[in-house]
Design a protein around this nucleic acid. Sequence first.
RNA 1: CGGGGUGUAGCUCAGACUGGUUAGAGCGCGUGCCUUGGGAGCACGAGGUCCGCGGUUCAAGUCCGCGCACCCCGACCA
Length: 611
Amino acid sequence: MRYSKYFLFTSKENPAGAINISHSLLIRGSFISQLSSGIYNFLPIGFRVLKKVWKVIEEEMDRIGALQVLMPALHPSDLWEKTGRWQTMDNVMFKLQDKKGANMVLGTTHEEIITDIVSKFVKSYKNLPLLLYQIQVKFRDEIRPKGGLVRAREFIMKDLYSFHTNWECLDKTYQDVYQAYVRIFERLSIPVESVEAFSGPIGGDVSHEFMVVTEAGEDKFVKCTNCGYAASTEIAQIKKPEINYKYKPIDKLNKVHTPSVSSVEQLVNFLGKKPQNFVKSVLYRVGSTYILVLVRGDKEVNEIKLEKYIKNELKIMEEISMAKEDDFDRLGSVIGFIGPLNLKDKILFLKNEKKLSDEIDLKIIADFSVYGLKDVIVGANEKDYHFVGIDFDNIEIDSFADVSTVIDGDKCVKCGEEYRIFPALELGHIFKLGTKYSEPLKAYFADKDGKIKPMIMGCYGIGVSRIISAILEAYSSENSMTWTFNSAPFFVYLITINMDDEAQYKISDNIYNGLSNFEVLWDDRKESAGTKFKDWELIGIPICIVIGNKIKEGLVEIKVNPNFPKTISNKKINSEFISKLFDSLSIFITLQEVEEKIKHIYNELDGIVNG
RNA sequence: CGGGGUGUAGCUCAGACUGGUUAGAGCGCGUGCCUUGGGAGCACGAGGUCCGCGGUUCAAGUCCGCGCACCCCGACCA
């Protein structure tokens, strides 16, 4: 491709409002342009990158026997109503009506549609398992899109769905997909961590996320410094401490006046203590049971873990909600000043006075973080008062549980060593769905014995457009993108220093034609050398061939994007080999060697990355 | 959805507080000269619904009100 005929409009200026390096570089390089908040055009060079990523994903999906389909982005509401997600996903759906007034939705995801398709065609175990996928646009009306392609309202996703006769078969496919994902990220040279994850509204019991560590991400995961176990902070568990707890009621409560000071942060300032010197009490309601959760002041209640605990251990199945102001009134406490010490007495008193129904129950659950605390501060269940000087065994609790979100330094549930927290961007997420969608949408099949059963399903997503940002976040620097071998829009950037110099022009033309199999972008503009070098660096093409004055001596320079070798040695191969491959390049070599060198490097890299 | 901010040339931004001829700069774009190993130089030129609507005023890019859009922080979120 000749630059002069191409659609490339680079900019020296950072776009206003771009916070992430990937966002800024993509705009500056004219890879994408913004149409509206969270809605982007892919311009020619950006679309080339998208297609490169797309191709790797397709090849790996094909390799595990998945079949590609293309489903519509525009859906009627009925299928979504059948699964209940018309309501539960309402907050992110673009909903609209057609001219007849029928409800429609722009697809946020495609479980409903694919399940509907399969239910119509597949009736027998003989046609299962079945893996179908698409690479298509998704719409989510995110309240706050940000970071360019990091969180967009319209974005490209690869979504794969699998259908099975039984769980064992799903387990096997889940492993196949897991391995396919590992290969996809390896081939794109993206350093991902796979972490245990929360299934969320998609549903199912088991899920993994593929995360890339970057400040540009919006998620967090923890990884054990010893055994390497990794999990999303949404679900990461903490090792249970050796608990030796004997309730010792305190003789005299020491109450302090804390006027209009209720949050831990305010208390820290008011009393001059650390957050760890507080026990935070958070009240939840589950049916007629109130749950008072105690966590150390520097930690947060994890509602996902709490919900699991309440359902699995306490066997209470009603919906859990945060207590409201009238709940506090009912229990004789005050919002912002609730605490565990005298709350049960208050409730007993209210019940005796017939001011509170006997059905109401209160359970006090202490997070592991509260265990062993001495001399802490808790709410006094009285406006503007806290108790001080409390030890953990002065608090009468019903049970200890792991119900707080992991923070740096918490102990690994597997081996007991310390966790570290990493900021991350989620690129892929795989789920075991079970029959969550096959039941309501009647995706049934006849088994060998003629019994009609619902199909067992899995679903597996990759944020294709988000991957583009992730690659740049992983390797790029302020004024220079770095693409990886399989994502680079071009492999070679050919610079002709002086287009008016006939010798330079002719040789450039020959090299351009001679390397036509290697995706060459020829900067054939009558611009200054500096302009061309800066553009090469900005758009991040791995190899640069420079045709300049030295051509008189039959010499040509080959340069490598200095960050590019990092994207290869990331792949656990011999780094000495990599440096050898590139070290001899940033010098002048003879004209005859150029084609040979480029072919050699290309083939070696192809073997390493895709082999 | 809460808080904050911005909206002026294709882009990045001055000008607004303190209203007053014809609204500016840099970059980019066009033409010519010159230059060709690190975003060169000179000259000329094109390019504006100052986000929209309404109001105040002799006079509004500037002040006031309403609206819209976009950005940032937080909450939210496969």
